[in-house]
Simulated scan of single mutants.
Amino acid sequence: MWSIIIVIILSVIAYFITDQLIPNLKDLFINAGLYGVDLCKNSKNKIPEALGVVSGCIFLVTSFTFIPIVFGNGLMDRESFPHNEFAELLAALLSICCMLLLGFADDVLDLRWRYKLLLPTVASLPLLVVYYVNFNSTTFVIPIPFREWLGASINIGFLYYIYMGMLAVFCTNAINILAGINGLEVGQSVIIAISVIVFDIIELRGDQYKAHTFSLHIMLPYLATALALLKHNWYPSKVFVGDTFCYVSGMTFAVVGILSHFSKTVLLFFLPQIINFLYSVPQLFHFVPCPRHRLPKYSAETDLLQASRTVIVKKDMTFLTKTIVQILRIIQLVDVKEDSDTIVMNNLTLINLFLIKFGPMPEVRLVIMLMLFQCLCSCIAFVIRYPMASYFYDT
């Protein structure tokens, strides 16, 4: 317990350091050409990009500072030194550090999407190696209703490592594609982090005490630095976080989910991101035309955001495209306008879905609604994890 208290103290310090550094480094990023313009506002002021690298660096430095404090006593007695726990922490920080580097490279070089899928896979390798050495548990517990046919558990072997690698890829990119308005990337990450911390605190009394203590050691400094970044990224944004923050955040959640053995629970906290991903699949895989930016459209006259749209030329439509559009129309998940030659429909993101269901609205109201939806989904996740789980598992 004393180690958690120390982490809390270090995290509070990290918050204030991050809060002071971000405004002091803004001009440095602009002078280096790392800046953008907020497309959802009238103002064309330069806003520094990739400031997620600042919060990411402070998060890692705080975690590095924590190492000698926690493991210092073990250095005096090498026979009792917790080598496995030390290896887990180093692998976790190495994977996060790799994503910090690769995310910043993406912000600077604007890498193609195929690299955004490859980079998290490479960065997760230290994590998977340590998991193999320390645990190598590749068994899934079968839900009670299916045990008559499949048994109590099933060992899927190497497929489990593919699943964990895909988890890292999903977490990093899921936050990245649910983005585009002030405070959304950091806001959703903060709510997920708080959800994980609450889950850890609940589980501290269980038999996985060490695993959830490890998770808290990582999540508390992450949350502190993310909150400091959110202060500057909230509407109206003074800084943009860039892909760096999304990559670091996704890998951090993947790290605690894998090494603390609750990867399925982590996915429950990603319900809005899963919904957004499934809704976006037709455009992500180019079954439906996908523009470079799917940001909501800003109206300067009303100062409101409305759903952005994509154009489908009817003569170029495949059978699959026609089927997808028709299904989306039937279940009322798209707003379609068509003439003899084209079909115009909203871009397939959760942000645009909110705008077609609730109508045009100010940016700050939209991000608050999305954050409330994230909170609602976290509450649903806890209901699934505890009351409902007893119907499917022996808990």
Results as ranks from 00 to 15, higher is better:
Q306L: 05
L267E: 04
D243A: 06
V311A: 00
K297N: 13
V248R: 04
V248T: 07
F262K: 02
V313E: 12
F262A: 07
I275E: 12
R309P: 03
K297Q: 14
V256T: 13
G250I: 06
A228L: 07
H286G: 00
R309Q: 15
P236F: 10
Y247W: 08
F253E: 08
V241I: 13
F270A: 07
G242K: 11
N233R: 06
P272V: 05
C290H: 15
S237T: 09
S299Q: 06
L271I: 15
L278N: 00
I258N: 11
P272S: 07
F277T: 13
L271K: 02
F245R: 00
G242H: 14
V256W: 03
S299G: 09
D316I: 03
R294P: 04
H232T: 10
H232W: 15
V239G: 07
V241E: 06
M251H: 03
T244E: 12
N233S: 15
D243M: 08
F270G: 03
L305G: 11
D243K: 12
Q306V: 00
F245G: 03
S237C: 11
G257H: 10
A300P: 12
C246Y: 01
H261C: 09
F285Q: 05
S308Q: 05
R292W: 05
E301F: 02
L295S: 11
S260L: 02
L271F: 11
V248Q: 00
P291K: 12
V281D: 06
K238M: 11
F262V: 08
F262H: 09
V266Y: 06
L230D: 09
K231T: 01
C290D: 02
A228R: 07
A228F: 09
V311I: 15
K264V: 08
F240K: 11
T244D: 08
F287E: 02
A300I: 15
A254C: 06
P282S: 11
V239M: 08
Q306D: 14
T310R: 00
Q306F: 05
Q273C: 13
K231V: 14
Y235D: 12
K314Y: 03
S308E: 11
T252L: 11
G242A: 10
W234M: 10
L229V: 14
Y235G: 00
L268D: 01
L268E: 03
V281K: 01
I312S: 01
G257T: 13
L267N: 04
S237E: 15
F270N: 02
V256I: 15
Y247Q: 14
P289F: 05
S299I: 09
V239D: 08
V313A: 12
T244A: 04
K315V: 12
R292A: 14
M251W: 10
V256N: 08
